[in-house]
Amino acid sequence: MRHSQSHVFPETGVDNTQAAVDKRLDPPSKFKAVLISLFRWLIPLGVILLGWQATSLFLASDNVPSVVEVFASLQTHLIHGDMLHHLMVTLLRVALSFCIAMFFGVMIGIVMGAFPRLNEAGDSLLVIALNVPALVTIILCYVWFGLVEAAAITAVAINKIPTVIVMVREGARVVDRDLLQVAQVFNVSPLRCFFKVYLPQLYPFIMASARSGLSLIWKVVLVVELLGRSDGVGFQLGTFFHFFDIASILAYTLAFAAIILVIEGLVMRPLDRYIARGNYNGGGPSDNHRYTGGL
């Protein structure tokens, strides 16, 4: 019982002992724990799919395709259509604008968090930038730079940068001065100090903004594609909208949602685990290194 618990809720246990518990686990009980967590994940999904299928059968409307129809459409698009091409194009746009937004957001966030005067000066600008609708930046970028790839990517990045700034700035504000003093006293080189002492304290904040960023960016990318590109998931959705092809719209949505799930599992989760090494949680209540420097 204890074993399966520590596996299902790894975040509630003391992570120090996690490795030790894993070692003690004999293979059958570990397998069982994985099975249990898989079932917990599968049951809600099954309920939703069943409910969907039942609703569509009950309504018997062309506008509410059944699960079977959607998966059939997904199969056709994957094998006979050019779904893979459009998915890849969209994914590339997401990746590019994500990287650009994160880079500038983190840089500006660090600067604003580190220098209170700059922060005051930029604060109202930031509030405005946060509240400019995505549609406005997209239209303006297309009008000013033309209907080109660079305009599309810039528009998406501009939409995301302010939210990254806000989160990273919070992290830069609460950076542990005590640890920076250690680097100063021991004469650690500025570059090493930045990457080994300063930046790790921001990782939890950068990670949180990356998480929320990915979901926001791919939504904005679709709008950008709908308005001014001739390929990508957004463009395809626009086309299907003209033909009222609801099954295809849902098939594309499912396909891209699946990709995001895979990214979450293969990139975000491992990154999370890497950042939380040493049980570091970004200065939460259990971090005893903070607020302890006495006179």
């Binding site: 005590d178 003093q181 250690v182 021991f186 080994k196 950042i275 090494r277």
Partner: peptide
Amino acid sequence: LSYIFQQPRLMPW
């Protein structure tokens, strides 16, 4: 110069 602080001040990561 080395400094042993009141708290160990190790980098937790």
